[in-house]
């Protein structure tokens, strides 16, 4: 579903992402681990077509995102580290707004149901987003992905700064989406969350994917050892 083929991004002499080859199958949750500046967000941005690759291709459902930006946008939903919504609108209105922006129309009842399914408390649905916590905003993001019926979810450190309960709720929502066949590429620093939620893990260092494996193949301790080994070398 998601594929990076010799994907490279350079800024002058600096190479942010170097010859990335990656394949994420439909329904998988692929977690990219790595320190700051390892190239995780650059990878996400390339799949979002926010930036042009210097070399290589990023494809979604076999479509090159640079060549087919409109079609690939229809397939994906994106939740950044800190999902920002319009503070003057309610959660429901924000959801309706972003759905319409992507060309999707839902009734108010459907949108409310999606927000409830995404874990937002009913009391908050009609409150302005200025009153929302970060976790609540991320839930609106998940509701948006559901509303858009996205096949691909691109997440850039979505649980960063969330408390453990909210983080756990978010992981459950991802697993629920996985059950529905949604493919997820998630950049994260959280080893525990990656092992707990992901189906595959890739470790990035200085723009290079240095390791990738299925989470079932490693224990949490092994993952931690492996990660620290790469970070210290």
């Amino acid at each position: 579903m998601l594929q990076a083929i010799n994907l490279t991004k350079s800024y002058g002499a600096f190479t942010a992402l170097n010859n990335l080859n990656l394949s994420v199958q439909a329904g998988d949750i692929f977690c990219l681990l790595g320190a700051n500046g390892a190239g995780k967000s650059t990878t996400i941005n390339l799949f979002l077509n926010f930036i042009e690759p210097t070399e290589g291709q990023a494809t979604i459902d076999t479509l090159d995102v640079s060549q087919h930006p409109k079609k690939t946008k229809q397939l994906l939903s994106y939740i950044p580290e800190n999902l920002r919504l319009y503070p003057n609108l309610t959660g429901l209105e924000n959801l309706e707004f972003f759905c319409r922006l992507g060309g999707k129309r839902h009734t108010n009842d459907q949108l409310q149901e999606l927000l409830l399914q995404s874990g937002l408390q009913a009391d908050f649905i009609h409150q302005r987003v200025s009153n929302y916590s970060k976790g609540m905003r991320q839930k609106v993001g998940i509701a948006l992905a559901r509303a858009r019926q996205a096949k691909v979810l691109l997440l850039d450190e979505p649980t960063s700064g969330l408390d453990p309960k909210a983080s756990n709720e978010f992981s459950e929502l991802l697993l629920d989406m996985k059950e529905k066949g949604v493919t997820t590429l998630m950049a994260t620093h959280d080893l525990f969350r990656a092992k707990d939620t992901g189906t595959h893990i890739g470790i990035m260092k200085e723009g290079v994917l240095v390791e990738q494996f299925a989470t079932a193949e490693v224990s949490f301790q092994d993952l931690e050892q492996l990660y620290l080994k790469h970070m210290h070398n």
């Binding site: 979002l48 926010f50 950044p80 972003f98 858009r148």
Partner: peptide, 18 residues
């Protein structure tokens, strides 16, 4: 500055139209 542009860019078929 408010951080909504990334979401708009990822959702809207044409951010310019938005």
């Amino acid at each position: 500055e408010g951080g909504t542009w990334r979401l708009i860019s990822s959702q809207a078929s044409s951010p310019l139209l938005y």
